[in-house]
Each structure stands twice: as structure tokens, then as C-alpha cells.
Computed example of a mutant assay.
Amino acid sequence: MRTISDTLARTTRLKPGKAEPVHPRSRLLTLTDFGSNPGGLKAKYYLPKSLAKKPALVVVLHGCTQIPADYDAGSGWSKMADEHGFALLYPQQLRDNNGNLCFNWFLPDDFGREKGEALSIRQMIAAMVSRHKLASERIYVTGLSAGGAMANVVLATYPEVFAGGAIIAGLPYATASTVSEAFDRMRGHGIPQARELRTILRAASGHTGPWPTLSVWHGTNDGTVSEANARAIVEQWRGAHGLGSTPDVTETVDGQARNVWKGIDGRDRIALYSIRDMGHGLPLDVASGYGKSGPYMLDVGISSTAHIAHSWGLTRKPARRRQNRSAAKPPSVRVTPADRPFSLGEKIRTVIGYALRTTRLKP
């Protein structure tokens, strides 16, 4: 097992290049003048030609090396927004804040309420709701990897803002405050026990409820962010919702395992999707018509975008694959040369390692 010093040495030698874009031209507009912006972030947004009555807002947080346009093209969120009339907000990390465009989910000055990047995102949301007359009770957030961890940050620090969240290959809130701790947590080492996780969450805002609903998505073969983090996120939020340790529903959805914890009213509160054999990335079903394969965008036969949107009431039903599928045989994960352990896995670890090593502390 590599030590932190080993990893840092490797990242020093193997500085990654820029991520290749996967979009022909961005559909996104720039959001300006949204507040004091203590986190020094930029913001993009998307409004479909026709907004629904009481339009929802979905906040989407990209992963390391990505920019909003890449993430939108790969995930298919703006296409779904066109069809169902909701708005999108894409906070954008800058290299001045983080060497490889990772949100700083592990820096105390960025993961606290009324601080840094968390407050910047809150200010963006307020500007979008005010300027475009969006429904303040229909605000949701999702993110991948470092973006998933930052989605958990804003859910924890501003739970009164969000009706729901979806964390993809992310980490529990406020369990790392240094670079070395961030590496450890990503590997699944040193994650606090359930009681401490819940105490950390409750201390983030002083909120008394109701709490946002949550779905957690993670690949069982993720070599970059250990699957133990997905279970820890569930434990952290299960306490806030007052849910039991055993899921109320265990089922297979589009060939993948889904565990659901329900509230006393019978509504889904937390859902955990375990994507069999998937590495580090966003689960897609390209055949559904939403998203396309690319770096960290993995066509594994289940559309996280469609299922997440449906769980939030943004669509009438989740998209299904366009071709016939045998119910008895789950879809297999499509492995390309770039997905094999010693290429994609090592590349992602190198990228994130370099990003953490070059993170710049804000004054």
C-alpha cells in the first residue's frame, strides 16, 4: 500500500496534462455579479426555452479536470432540462484555487457555512432564484467525485436550501481538513464512526429539519474513491433523518443494486446505488438518449441523470434503454482500454493527487 509521501512523490513526477473537452460548443451562459464570492469561483447556467410552472433549479458540480461544458455534454443534464423545463447552475472551479480544478471539499475555509466555496455556491443559487423566478422550494444539487464531496458540503452547510441531493463517487462531509487526510479518506482509511459522522453533520448548520432527501451512487470497482465512503455518507445522513440501519427496500434497478431507506410517511429518504464493476466516474446509459461517453463518463447501462431527475419529481418517469434488455441478465460494464486499472485508475489518482498537492490556500 502506498504511503502519502509515495503518492506525493509520484504526483510531482507525473504532472498531468489538461483534460480533453468532450463538447463541440457550450450551451451554457455565464452568471455574473452573484455576490461577494469568497470562494473565488465562476458560474455557468442554463435556461431552457420554456420553463415549467414553479421551475426547479439543479446545481451541478463537476469533478477534477472538468469544466461545466464538459460535464453537461457528458451527463445530458441540459437536454433533460430542455424536455422538462428546469434550470441548471454549474459552479466552476478555477486553477487559482486548485491546480486541477477540484472543488476544495477538504479545506475548512471552504467547507464551512458562510465561508469560501460553500458560500459562493449559496450566493449563486440566490442570484439564480431571484433573477429567473425559480421555485425556492425546488432546489437540488448533484456532483461527481470532488464535485460530489462539495455537493455534500453544501447539503450539510445549507440543508434549508435544498429539497434533495445526489452524490456520485463522493465523500462524507468534513472528514478531512488536510491534504494527507484527504488522501486517506479517499482510500477509505480513517473514516469516522457513524456517531461522529452524524455529530459533524448536525454541527454544520444547526438545522432542525426537514432534511434534504439523498441518493448516493458509487462503483464497486472504484480505485480512486473507496466505496467505503458511499456507506459512510449513508450513515452520516441516516442519523439526520432518524432512519433505521436496515434498508426498507432492496431491489435491482437497470441491473444494479439499489437500497432504500424510507421515512415514516413512506417516502424515499436515502437511496444507495452500487454499480457493479464500475470504476471512478458518472454512471450513464447512452442508449437512453442522455449523455455520452468520455473521460469519467461511463456507459454502464444505467442513467444516473435520468434516475436522479425522476427521484426529484422533475420527470414523470426515468428514461429506459432504447433497445430491448433481458430482465434476467443485467447489462455488463463496457471496459475500454482507458478504463483498465493501470491506465484510467492510475491516471485519475495522479490527477487528483496533483490537484491536492497544488491546492492554494486562500488568504
Rank of each mutant, 00 (worst) to 15 (best):
V286F: 07
D254P: 12
S303R: 08
K18W: 10
V153G: 00
I67G: 00
T65G: 02
P108M: 12
P330H: 03
R321C: 11
R322H: 15
I191L: 07
S36A: 15
A43S: 08
S274E: 14
M1F: 08
S130N: 02
T175D: 04
Y273D: 02
V58Q: 13
T358A: 09
A230L: 10
I270Q: 06
A52F: 13
A52V: 13
K115I: 08
A203G: 05
I67D: 03
T208Y: 00
G289D: 09
I121V: 10
W312T: 06
P16E: 09
M80W: 12
P283C: 11
D72T: 09
G164Y: 09
P48I: 03
I4R: 10
L47N: 05
A127P: 06
E114W: 07
G40W: 12
M278H: 14
Y71P: 00
T315S: 11
L28F: 07
M128H: 01
Q92C: 05
L61W: 03
H280T: 03
G255Q: 12
H132T: 13
Y46A: 04
F183A: 01
K347P: 05
I139T: 06
K347C: 02
T7M: 06
S311N: 09
D277W: 14
A176E: 02
H132G: 04
G219H: 07
W261T: 06
E235C: 04
R25E: 13
L282Y: 15
D222W: 08
V216I: 07
G289F: 07
H23T: 08
D6E: 11
V60W: 05
G294M: 00
I348P: 03
R258C: 15
R27V: 10
F106Q: 02
P68V: 14
L344V: 14
D6P: 08
V153Y: 02
R122G: 06
V22H: 00
A309E: 02
S5A: 13
H207G: 01
G263L: 13
L284R: 02
V22Q: 00
I308H: 03
G244Q: 13
T359I: 12
I191S: 01
A19M: 05
F111Y: 15
G17E: 00
S332R: 12
T213G: 01
F183T: 04
A319F: 04
K15D: 02
A56N: 05
D254E: 15
M80T: 09
T250W: 13
L201N: 01
G99Q: 14
H207K: 06
G165A: 01
E235P: 08
S288H: 10
S75W: 05
L61Q: 08
A69C: 15
S303M: 07
G281V: 13
D285N: 10
H218N: 04
L29F: 13
V153W: 02
V161W: 00
T12L: 10
R138H: 04
I352L: 06
Q256K: 14
L47M: 05
L171Y: 02
R322L: 11
V141N: 02
E235N: 05
A287M: 11
T175E: 05
A151E: 00
T246D: 15
K115T: 06
L101W: 06
R122I: 02
L356A: 11
A166K: 00
D339W: 12
P192G: 03
R185I: 13
L8K: 08
N324K: 12
D96N: 13
I352N: 05
D248G: 14
G188P: 08
Y71F: 15
N221C: 11
